[in-house]
Measured scan of single mutants.
Amino acid sequence: NQESVVAAQLIPINTALTLVMMTTRVVSPTGIPAEDIPRLISMQVNQVVPMGTTLMPDMVKGYA
């Protein structure tokens, strides 16, 4: 089963992602794949992401 990127903390809107903000977990439905974490660093979220929420492609500016 593929791991997806999950918020390790509350991420406010327009925050640039850092490694410490993200963790990985096997979730359903699947979100952004864990191997894309290096690509996500410094990208901004376009909404508030509560802790434990799976990051979906449409939540990250410039990802999709």
Rank of each mutant, 00 (worst) to 15 (best):
P33C: 14
V5H: 01
T18C: 03
Q2V: 13
V60S: 01
Q9E: 14
V49D: 00
V5G: 01
R39F: 04
M43T: 07
V26K: 03
T15D: 04
G62H: 11
T24F: 12
T30C: 15
G52R: 05
A16N: 04
E35N: 14
A64C: 15
L55W: 01
N14I: 03
P38H: 07
Q44A: 09
Q9T: 13
A34L: 15
Q2T: 14
R39C: 12
P38I: 10
M22Q: 01
P12S: 12
R39E: 05
G62D: 12
T18N: 07
P50H: 08
M21D: 15
T24V: 12
I37N: 01
A8W: 04
A8T: 07
P57I: 06
Q9Y: 04
M59S: 04
T53M: 14
G62E: 08
M56F: 09
N46A: 09
I11H: 00
T18S: 10
M56N: 08
S28I: 04
D36A: 12
A7H: 01
D58G: 12
L40S: 00
L19K: 12
V48F: 09
Q9D: 10
G31C: 04
A64K: 15
I32W: 02
G62A: 14
P33G: 13
L40T: 02
L40V: 08
V20L: 06
M43R: 11
V27Q: 11
N14R: 05
Q47G: 07
P33W: 09
D58I: 10
P57K: 08
P12G: 15
R39A: 07
V45F: 01
S42R: 07
Q9R: 06
R39S: 13
M21I: 03
S42Y: 08
G31I: 03
S4L: 02
M51S: 06
A64F: 03
M59D: 03
R39Y: 11
P38K: 06
T30W: 10
M59V: 04
M22G: 01
V45H: 00
V27K: 06
L40W: 01
V60W: 02
A7L: 02
N1I: 15
I11E: 00
L19D: 08
A64E: 11
T18W: 02
N46T: 10
N46Q: 15
Q47F: 04
P50C: 11
A34P: 10
A8N: 11
I41A: 08
V48E: 14
P38T: 06
A34M: 12
K61P: 04
V26M: 13
G31A: 09
I41S: 05
V26E: 15
I37M: 10
I11A: 00
P57W: 09
V48M: 08
L17R: 00
P33D: 08
